[in-house]
Simulated scan of single mutants.
Amino acid sequence: MSKIETLKILDRDSVNALVLPEQILFAVREAFYLHSAGEGQVFPIVREALSTGGIFGIKSGGISSQGVLGFKAAGFWPTNRALGGEPHQATILLIDPATGRPLCMIDGNTITTLRTGAAGALGLEILARRDSAKLTVFGTGVQATIQVDYALRVMPGIKSVTYLTFDGQPSPEFEAQFSKRCSVKHSASSNDAVSSSDVVITATPGGQVLFDLEAVKPGTHINCVGADTKGKREAPEGLLAKATVIVDDRDQATQMGETQWASSLPVIEIGDLLTGKVEFSRSADEITVFDMTGLALQDLTVARLLFEQAKIEGVGHDISWPW
């Protein structure tokens, strides 16, 4: 006779009701720390192109000391826009490592957005100059928006945001989200925007180089978000060779991040800066790059946090699960 347990389902609305930006920052910091300390497992990534035109991937891992095991099945389907849907789709499943029983299925879109934004914020906290006041962002989509939101949270010195769009046209919707927090302006010149900024964030689909190497002035910090698949890039040739490069995971970055284009260069894992394994103190003229490819541990620490909150607050849908 089968045992009956409960599988909790957290849809998008349930996730949105639970998330607090500060808690997401804490969970992502924990993920990087665990990765550096060797207390979190990250399994090989699946990343495949589909005949439908989409990209499908699986990121998985576990934290044995916390009883955490799971995966995120996610990808990018560009034709979803024509259907009125979000191109990025993600679902997370938490599993009991002792039995293999599924514990919680979670809509992963919001989690992916927030944990990536939080990772970018940590990169800025650790790597950007403290006197940074001008930020440029490439993109106005969901990820560009959350990157700017978190940047303004952790770097109150940012007074102006310049943004660039794929079609070269201003976005009143994007401007309205930040106009009360800082000065926001559109630019049609990527090089002008980069050369006048202290912080640059690239958050596009990663289909092309976005600016020239000569536009990057000494002291600039760059968060590279869009290169998350083999063949993608946003940064110009030669940038990484001129910069101190920080990654979330060395192997992953050389396979699918900006670092794939300069895989022989030395890099530092951000978790090693958090744990103190590596000491780093930037100079005023140093160029730094955070190559963000996204760790399964980020998804899992955030998902575990939301799962525990949901049980306490009675959020989500519980269904019987024979096993």
Rank of each mutant, 00 (worst) to 15 (best):
136 T>G: 02
134 K>N: 09
2 S>Q: 12
197 S>I: 10
72 K>V: 12
174 F>Q: 13
143 Q>F: 09
292 M>P: 00
300 L>N: 14
304 R>F: 05
3 K>T: 09
66 Q>H: 14
100 G>Y: 08
239 L>E: 11
27 A>M: 12
222 I>G: 03
2 S>G: 00
25 L>P: 06
47 R>L: 07
26 F>G: 04
39 E>S: 11
9 I>A: 04
90 A>M: 10
305 L>M: 15
322 P>W: 12
248 D>Y: 06
298 Q>H: 10
26 F>S: 15
309 Q>R: 14
4 I>W: 11
3 K>S: 06
93 L>P: 00
257 G>R: 07
114 L>C: 09
232 K>E: 10
84 G>V: 09
302 V>S: 10
197 S>V: 10
298 Q>W: 03
93 L>A: 04
107 D>Q: 08
111 I>N: 07
285 D>K: 13
288 T>Y: 01
257 G>V: 08
228 D>L: 07
106 I>E: 05
309 Q>E: 14
12 R>T: 07
8 K>N: 07
113 T>A: 14
56 F>Q: 11
287 I>E: 07
233 R>N: 04
260 Q>P: 05
135 L>I: 02
92 I>F: 09
313 E>P: 00
228 D>I: 13
9 I>T: 02
141 G>L: 11
203 A>M: 05
308 E>C: 06
74 A>G: 03
